[in-house]
Amino acid sequence: MMRVVQSKLIKETVKKLCLKANIELRGDMLAALKRARAVEKNLKARRILDIIIDNALIARKKKMAICQDTGMVVVYFDIGQDVMIKGNIDKAINEGVREAYKEGYFRKSIVKGPFSRKNTDTNLPSVIYTKIVPGNKISITVIIKGFGCENASRTKMFMPTESPAAVEDFVVDVVKETGSKACPPVYIGVGIGGTLDKAVSLSKEAVLRKIGSHSEIPHVAKMEKSILRKINKLNIGPMGAGGKATALGVSILTYPTHIAGLPVAVNISCHATRNARKTI
C-alpha cells in the first residue's frame, strides 16, 4: 500500500526545521560547551565559553539566529519506497527554506553564480540529497552550514598503504592550520573510505551523531579519542584564546573503499553546529 504525502507537509516540515536549527542550539552541543567550561582552567577561554553559552540562551529567548551566518541549507531527504509524494519535492523543500529565512529574519547568504556573486535574496537554492529507503516514512534532516568553518574543511586522497597514524595527523593538521578561523571549540566530522564524494558526504553526516558518542567499531572509536586528545593539546582554544577546548568531539564514519585508495574528508563544524531532523 502506497502512503500518500502532500508536498505541503514537506514544505511546512522543512520550514520548521530551518527555524528550529537556526535558533535553538542542539542540546548535546550546549551540554558539551558547558562540560568544556567546567573543566577549563584558562580564564580568557572560560570567559569566551561563558559568552558562547550565553549567546545560545539569548538566541533561544529572543528567537534570533544563533550566528549571523545562517549558512547554506543542506537537506537530507530520505524517502520510504512506499511513499508517494503529491507535488514537486524540490519546490516544496526550497519553499520551506525560503519562508523560514524570511520569517526567521535570517541572513540570505547565497549568490546565484560562483563568479557573478549576485545574492538571490532568498537563501535559495539549498543543497538537496535524496535517498530511497525501505518503509513508508520520510526522514528530513536540515543542516545549516556556515562558511567560516566550511572554508576550513579539507579532503585528501591517501595512498592505500598509508597508516592510521598518518590519517590522524592529517586531521590534526587541518585543525591546526585553520586556527581560530573556524570558530572553535569545533566538532569534527571525518569521512574515511568510499570515493572522493562518499568520503565528503560521510564527513558531513558524521557531525549529526550525538557529540561525545563514539563509533561502534573499536579501532575507529580509538582513533576518534586519539585525534581529540591531540587536537586539544594544540592550545588554540575558544576563538584562539588558548586552553583545552579546541574541539568538543570527533566523529568518524567509514565505508568500504577501493584497493588503490584511501579517501579522507575532514568537515569542520563550528561551536554553533546547527541541524534538526524530523520523520514524517
Binding site: D54, A56, C67, Q68, C183, A272
Partner: peptide
C-alpha cells in the same frame, strides 16, 4: 581586535 565568532545574538545586544 578579535571578537567572539558565532556569538551573533550576544553581540547584537
Amino acid at each position: 581586535f578579535v571578537t567572539i565568532g558565532g556569538a551573533g545574538a550576544y553581540l547584537s545586544e
